[in-house]
């Protein structure tokens, strides 16, 4: 065990954990919103994320013709290029999510098949997407050109001493943008008509139908919003890590799903707390115990939490915000 690293690298670890956690938050929204309305896990969400990462890379490399030798952008050019990448990722992930709903869920739902069939068809769609991209890319990873020059945007303390606080601009972007998106979705679900319809469906599908809510439209909208959030996470992931491959969604999707369960799946604010908790846990455990112990410890913590709180950490405390 290496506790000294926590003492003299506390702030960098905390900031990295928060950035990772916020990416988890956005992806876990895709899981938790779908679970809220369908009571089913959208196993294809990891591939919805993967598609979003490729959208950012494809737009920057093939639409704007940037490569690894391109100098980072500045000013308005940086703004509209990154904006285009963000929109492309959100759109691609959103459209893919709706397609997943149409292909893997809707018809089976209309036929009244059991929930297991929907789960299997979602897993099948996930494998189809992943293998399709693997074949198209020959399993080769793709690097995202560095559009944003990285520098310490906020510095507190002397940079030459341990435990100074330096928050890089890309990390700051992740934290601020992801927090804003989460807040926007939370407000959207609790204040707008569509948001209320989503919450109504999550509470009782049958009653919602009797009240005149178009179930299919609400479910599609839920997938679309979840897909948008996952796509935004994919864009932020590319901004920080600048690399993707056909299976990029597997481990990060599993982590986001774990975050959703940890916080209380089906609960928006649970996804928020779960994502941040998991991000911080992963980073600090890797620092103290060694990276090889990260996954083991995270799942031990998850099992322990579920033993004592089967609905997750915040599953019942914030029931009102359930979608």
């Amino acid at each position: 065990m290496n506790f000294s690293v926590v003492l003299n690298q506390f702030w960098p670890l905390l900031i990295s954990g928060l950035a990772l956690g916020f990416i988890y938050v956005l992806i876990s929204l895709g899981y938790t919103m779908v679970y809220g309305v369908l009571r089913l896990i959208n196993f294809a969400n990891s591939e919805i994320f993967m598609v979003g990462t490729f959208a950012t890379v494809i737009v920057s490399r093939y639409f704007f013709h940037f490569d690894q030798n391109t100098d980072p952008l500045h000013g308005f050019r940086l703004f509209y290029t990154m904006g285009a990448c963000l929109i492309a990722s959100m759109l691609m992930s959103g459209v893919t999510a709706v397609m997943v709903e149409l292909i893997a869920y809707r018809r089976l739902r209309a036929k009244g098949t059991n929930r297991l069939a929907s789960l299997i068809s979602a897993i099948g769609t996930s494998i189809m997407l992943q293998e399709g991209v693997r074949i198209l890319t020959h399993s080769t990873p793709m690097s995202n050109p560095r559009l944003l020059r990285k520098f310490g945007a906020i510095t507190i303390g002397d940079v030459n001493t341990p435990n100074n606080v330096v928050i890089r601009n890309d990390i700051l972007l992740v934290i601020v943008f992801a927090a804003a998106l989460f807040f926007a979705v939370d407000r959207f679900v609790s204040k707008t008509l569509l948001g209320k319809a989503i919450r109504a469906v999550s509470m009782s599908e049958e009653t919602s139908r009797l009240m005149g809510i178009n179930l299919n439209r609400v479910i599609s909208a839920t997938f679309l919003i979840g897909g948008f959030m996952t796509g935004a996470a994919a864009f932020l992931y590319e901004t920080v890590y600048e690399n993707t491959k056909y299976n990029v969604g597997f481990s990060i999707g599993l982590a986001a799903f774990t975050a959703a369960v940890l916080g209380g799946i089906g609960n928006l604010r649970g996804a928020f707390f779960g994502g941040l908790t998991l991000g911080l846990l992963e980073v600090f455990i890797a620092a103290v115990l060694g990276t090889q112990w990260k996954s083991v410890t995270v799942f031990v913590v998850l099992v322990l939490v579920l033993l004592f709180k089967p609905n997750g950490l915040f599953g019942e405390a914030v029931q009102q915000s359930r979608v």
Binding site: V5, L20, Y237, E282, A287, G290, T291
Partner: peptide, 23 residues
């Protein structure tokens, strides 16, 4: 001054970087 073992296909190396700097 230290060693770590990080599985292939890891995206986030922030903990490892922190340990390297700390050491």
């Amino acid at each position: 001054v230290g060693k770590d073992s990080v599985a292939q296909k890891t995206s986030d190396y922030s903990a490892t970087v922190a340990k390297i700097k700390s050491a």
